[in-house]
Design a protein around this nucleic acid. Structure first.
Lengths: 153, 153
DNA sequence: CGCACTCCTGACCAAGAAGGTCAGGAAAGT
DNA sequence: ACTTTCCTGACCTTCTTGGTCAGGAGTGCG
C-alpha cells in the first residue's frame, strides 16, 4: 500500500514536461533531473517507460529532449502510475475481481474493489494540467480539507 | 500500490476470528489455516504480529488458540493492514506530509495526501463485523455500485 | 508429575523488486 | 566528422516477500 520512488519520480518529471509544454521545444533529460532532483540515469529509464506507454515522446541529438505526447489536461496521474508500477491495487499480484474468497472472508473482495475504486476516484481525476496549475479537482479538495488527513496514523 | 499476501491473509484470518467470537472458546491456528487456505506457519507469524499490536489474544496448550482482543465491530480493516504492512500510502517510505516538493510538482503532496485519505475512508470504515455479516458500510456500496469498478484498467 | 498440545520465536532461504550505476550504441543536428 | 542526447541492456546491492525449519515455552489433563 505504498507509492514507489519510481512512481513519484515519474509524476514529478511529467509535471515538469506539462509545464514546459507551451515552450514548443523538447526538454532535455538533464534539465528534468535537475529540476526535480532525480538521478539522471534513473530518470532516463523512467522516461523510456513513459515513452513506451505513449505518454511522452522524445528526440535524440542536439536540440533533442522529451515532451508530452498529449495535452497536459488529457494525461492523468493514474496513467503515469500504471505505466511505471503496473496495475493499481492488485492483491498478491492478481486483480481483486479474479479472487475467490471463502468462508467468512467472502465479502473481502468487495472491500478490495472499493479500495481500488477509491484510488481511481483520485488518480484518474487529477491531470498534469491540474497538478501544475494547482487547481486540483474538488475530490482532492474535499479529501484534504480536514486537518486529520494531514496527520499520520 | 498493491495489497500484500500478508495483509490479505491477516484480514481473512481476523474475519474468521470475528465469526467465532460468539463461541466463547479460542480458535486453533490450524482451523484458521484450513478455513482460509493459508500456510499454517505463515499464519502463525501473522497472528503473532496481530497479537503484538493488541488486536488478537492467544493462549497455548490444549484448549488454546486465538481470539479477538475486542468486539468485532471495534476492529477495522485499516488496523489490521497497518499491523502487518506498516503505514498506509507512504511515498518512498516517508509519510506524504513530510515530503517537500519543488518546482512544478509542488502540488503533488496534496494528491498523495488525498490518496491516503481516500484509502482511509474505506479501510477505517469497514469493521470485521461488517465483513462477516456482509453488511458493508455505504461508502463501499457506493464505490462498488458501478460495473466500472469491477473491471481492470 | 508427566505429557500432549498449541502457541512463540528466531534463523534461514529462494526469488524478486527497488533503487541505482555503468557502459556502449544509435539517431539527430551542426 | 563530431557532438549532443536519447536508448538499451547488463549489472549491483539492499530490502521485501512468501515461505519453511527447528526448537523453546506456557497450558491443561490424566
Amino acid at each position: 500500500m505504498r507509492v514507489s520512488a519510481k512512481a513519484d519520480y515519474a509524476v514529478r518529471a511529467a509535471a515538469e514536461l506539462a509545464a514546459a509544454q507551451k515552450e514548443e521545444a523538447p526538454v532535455k533529460g538533464e534539465r528534468l533531473a535537475d529540476a526535480q532532483d532525480i538521478p539522471l540515469q534513473v530518470l532516463e529509464h523512467i522516461l523510456l517507460e513513459l515513452k513506451h506507454h505513449g505518454i511522452v515522446r522524445a528526440r535524440r541529438g542536439a536540440k533533442g529532449g522529451y515532451w508530452l505526447a498529449r495535452p497536459a489536461d488529457e494525461v492523468t496521474v493514474a496513467e503515469i502510475v500504471r505505466a511505471v508500477e503496473g496495475p493499481i491495487a492488485h492483491v498478491q499480484s492478481t486483480p481483486p475481481e479474479d479472487i475467490e474468497y471463502r468462508g467468512n472472508a467472502e465479502h473481502l473482495q468487495a472491500v478490495w474493489i472499493a479500495v481500488r475504486a477509491s484510488l481511481r476516484t483520485v488518480l484518474e481525476e487529477v491531470t498534469l494540467a491540474d497538478l501544475v496549475s494547482g487547481e486540483l479537482p474538488s475530490v482532492v479538495g474535499d479529501l484534504t480539507a480536514s486537518p486529520d488527513a494531514w496527520v499520520a496514523r
